[in-house]
Design a protein around this nucleic acid. Structure first.
Lengths: 352, 352
DNA sequence: GACCCCTGTGTGACCGGTCACAATCCTGGC
DNA sequence: GCCAGGATTGTGACCGGTCACACAGGGGTC
């Protein structure tokens, strides 16, 4: 790779302040402030003059000064363990979208690990940025951060379905992935599979509940009177799914596998193919997330579509309400997960 | 609930300022400022007293006030068209990593379209945030932003390989994907394919050059004396690759396809399978990016690995140099693209 | 001992906004 | 014709840092 260039010349032109605008318009700086904030009691003629001056001088209100003086920072910081996993990235996208509409800035801070020191550090940095925090707490670093988060900072979290209704005053957003996991499992059961194995993303199980995908899966199995196998923890990545999948493929009794996310499913699919087992002929595989490429895999993946951008938007909306005057925390609609049946699931081997 | 750390139960309202620390330590606010900035001429004993006060009061310097007073904002904003595409997300991850190490905050602003108004708006918002800009200019919105970017704001861009050495003063980072495209094409040619078709990501071709993947591909074909087919523009997504791929599969003469990214390749693979053509038996397919799941597809994808996080880190390093005193812009190493041959490419049908 | 320089420290202005409050203008009611 | 009260507008402090500069001591040098 190569890099070019030297310092971009020029620069440092003093930015125009409201006082510059004020003198240009022949009013006081406070009147300018009123105009840019849309205060009602400014005479129309005055407002116009000020607006003309603003346009002419190319004035832009300094976000920094505004934040310092008002104490309100029109910004949110997203704390996440990863930006490359589809779900996380899509939530981020949703937050950004909503934030943009409200002209909020969005910052991001990644949680490298769940080491308390690292997490605390990220939390501090995010807090320093001012504004509110949006925490993606699907994974261990995120959940750790949820526990370590300082009081007094507005915070909204995207979490796994809580086991119990969360304490009042916990602005959390979640899709009902417990139900979703149950439905996916029921789908497989309905196809005649004796039971469904589960390739799990790392559990965040904790006092909070968590691991609700697992719970939904277990629930479906129990209801149907099926054997509940031990879930296999596989991480987040295709490589993890592959490694864990290889172990599962050794067991000929395995005919249906639910995977904690689509990446895991890709790894699982690969492991099955290498073991010479057909999908869905010998084994059915279902995923979770409906990443954009899942429909185009071979076989196309049966998976649960989750509305990640919706979660992101909801998180922002909640936070906005929290920050922008004590709006009571109102629930925000997030699309219900939906099972998308494609090619990777089919009748159990013996059942047709 | 647990309370961790030494914070005494107090609510986190009024933040402690350097003056609070100053009175607590019996010094002037300026001395506190010196301590937190590591100024050399502070007596050791004084420094200790101040540090003790800082620790006791839990002082944290207000980033906002610091930015306002000093004019330097320890922050960068990444402008990108999308956060969910692997390459973009990975660059973002790289930037964040490097920024964190330098204790810079990172913001993100997405370019919804290449409509000049939208782009200008995003640019303005990013500029308002203070600090420098990192622009991911692989796509049309990004390139548009590159043109519209205001002078006087420190800016670094991740771009496609420029056709000509860029003008001095353009701090750009790129991987040599022209060469990479050439190598991938040569790999296919060496397998006996008469020519290689190209499923292209949207061209940014412009005064700048751009579309260097295309150029590298064309170069290899020309050198080999092969026919140069018309590139097929397919977008960025698997769906786009699939749609464009269907058209390509109609032509029985097509035996090798290079795709502008791995997502496109997934769509292409799907289109081929639906058409009943074997990969790599009938048609070879190569991608670009080496996304984490590409190795686990069926067939595993031959692709070019690009060091996106490296690009992100390099961007930040460059920007940091730009901002932090006119450090001359020093090149920053980014791993050379490397062709990873897997299962999706093989000998041309007739050639064995 | 005068002079100078360097180390350590304090003082007050300033960054570009907002906030609280005072001052002035205008209009209707009596 | 006078006054209350809302509509407009101005004044100066303040947010929490940094900056420029002044000032007190403590060696060295001559």
């Amino acid at each position: 790779m190569r890099v070019t260039g030297n310092t971009r010349g020029s620069g440092a032109q003093r930015s125009v302040s409201i006082r510059d605008v004020a003198t240009a318009a022949g009013v006081s700086h406070q009147t300018v402030s009123r105009v840019i904030n849309g205060h009602p009691s400014v005479r129309a003629s005055t407002r116009e003059r000020v607006e003309a001056a603003i346009a002419e001088l190319g004035f832009r209100r300094s976000a920094t000064a505004h934040a310092l003086a008002s104490g309100r920072t029109r910004a949110v910081t997203v704390l996440t363990a990863n930006t490359t996993h589809y779900g996380h990235a899509a939530i981020l996208q949703g937050v950004e979208e909503a934030a943009r509409a409200a002209s909020f800035a969005v910052g991001i801070s990644v949680l490298d690990s769940d080491d308390p020191r690292v997490v605390r550090d990220a939390l501090d940095r995010a807090t320093d940025a001012g504004g509110g925090l949006i925490l993606i707490a699907y994974d261990r670093p995120g959940v750790r951060a949820l526990h370590l988060a300082p009081e007094g900072v507005p915070l909204v979290a995207a979490v796994e379905t809580p086991a119990a209704p969360p304490a009042a005053g916990s602005p959390w957003v979640w899709t009902d992935d417990r139900t979703a996991a149950r439905e996916a499992t029921e789908h497989l059961l309905a196809l005649g599979h004796r039971t469904v194995h589960y390739l799990a993303i790392p559990s965040t199980t904790d006092s909070d509940g968590g691991a609700q995908r697992t719970a939904g899966w277990r629930e479906a199995l129990t209801r149907a009177g099926a054997v509940v196998p031990e879930p296999v923890e596989a991480g987040w990545t295709p490589a993890g799914g592959y490694a864990a999948g290889r172990r599962l493929t050794e067991d000929p009794a395995v005919t249906a596998v639910l995977c904690g996310n689509d990446d895991l499913a890709i790894g699982m699919l690969r492991a099955l193919r290498e073991a010479g087992r057909e999908v869905p002929g010998d084994v059915s595989v279902a995923g979770f997330d409906d990443a954009p490429h899942s429909a185009f895999l071979t076989p196309a993946l049966t998976t649960v579509r989750l509305d990640f951008t919706g979660v992101g938007r909801a998180c922002f909306a909640l936070l906005h309400g929290l920050v922008e005057q004590g709006d009571p925390i109102s629930p925000h609609p997030v699309a219900t997960p939906r099972l998308i049946v494609r090619e990777s699931t089919g009748p159990a081997p013996g059942s047709r």
